[in-house]
């Protein structure tokens, strides 16, 4: 029994430390690659396209629904408590910038890109493609991890910004259609509580989440064992662990940025 507990504890620590170790190695390799001009440009462009462009429709659609719901919920709550909903635009914008846009974007990226990274690297592992990379003296961190990191960070930041623009448009439309706001009136009150620091904080979160997803997913893929079952398990682990990391990181970042 005690051995099992120790094993679970060890695996938990390993799940936490492995992405951090890979992150440290990648930072070192990235600096080395930049100094030696050895970045795999085509692979980086592919990853940016795969992560950002191909994720755009699902993220915009989801954020449209989320911002619609948040506006209607805010309005209902404020009318219930304050008997008016004049502050809805201001509050909803703060929530969107600080939390909803970066976190929902990251969660959706995890399910689309994180699972794909883990499955792809896991398949490469079980079909000996990773061994072949070593035989060709190509660093797997340089060729596989860094392009995915750059692609994910790019996707996370640009899609968070795109989500914000979408949510502003949707909120303005909803407010003018269902809440008797004039579009310009709603738009003017949107930024009452939102400051540049909030936008900076939201983008910092996007950067952190865009870093967490590829590292957790790459560790799951690179440590994959067995055949197709192992690949499936690696993809599942990548999504679950990335989501947990994102939730923890979101809490600590929010606490650090807006509570102090």
């Amino acid at each position: 029994m005690r051995n099992n507990e120790q094993r679970v504890l060890f695996l938990g620590f390993e799940a936490l430390l492995s992405p951090i170790r890979l992150f440290a190695t990648s930072c070192r390799v990235l600096v080395f690659s930049i100094v030696n001009i050895r970045l795999h440009g085509r692979e980086i462009t592919n990853q940016m396209f795969e992560s950002a462009v191909l994720s755009l429709p699902i993220i915009l659609f989801s954020l449209t629904i989320v911002s619609l719901m948040s506006i209607l919920e805010f309005s209902w709550h404020m009318k219930l408590v304050l008997k008016q909903d004049a502050l809805v635009p201001g509050f909803s914008m703060v929530l969107m910038v600080r939390e909803v846009a970066p976190v929902v974007t990251a969660m959706l990226l995890t399910s689309r890109v994180g699972a794909s990274i883990a499955a792809e690297l896991g398949f490469m592992k079980v079909t000996e493609q990773l061994d072949q990379l070593k035989l060709l003296s190509v660093s797997e961190v340089e060729y596989l991890v860094i392009p995915r990191w750059v692609g994910c960070v790019f996707a996370s930041i640009t899609l968070t910004l795109a989500s914000l623009v979408t949510s502003i448009c949707v909120s303005t439309g909803i407010a003018s259609r269902f809440m008797n706001y004039q579009p310009h009136e709603f738009f003017n009150t949107l930024f009452v509580f939102t400051k540049a620091f909030d936008l900076g904080g939201g983008l910092l979160k996007a950067f952190c989440f865009g870093t967490i997803i590829p590292f957790v997913s790459c560790v799951c893929g690179l440590s994959c064992q067995g055949g197709s079952r192992g690949v499936g398990q690696a993809a599942t682990r990548a999504v679950v662990q990335s989501c947990l990391f994102i939730i923890f990181a979101d809490f600590f970042l929010s606490y650090w940025l807006w509570t102090f």
């Binding site: 000996e128 493609q129 061994d131 072949q132």
Partner: peptide
């Protein structure tokens, strides 16, 4: 290798 180990992409 036993498997072809070619890069799919």
């Amino acid at each position: 290798f036993q498997s072809p180990a070619l890069f799919d992409s």
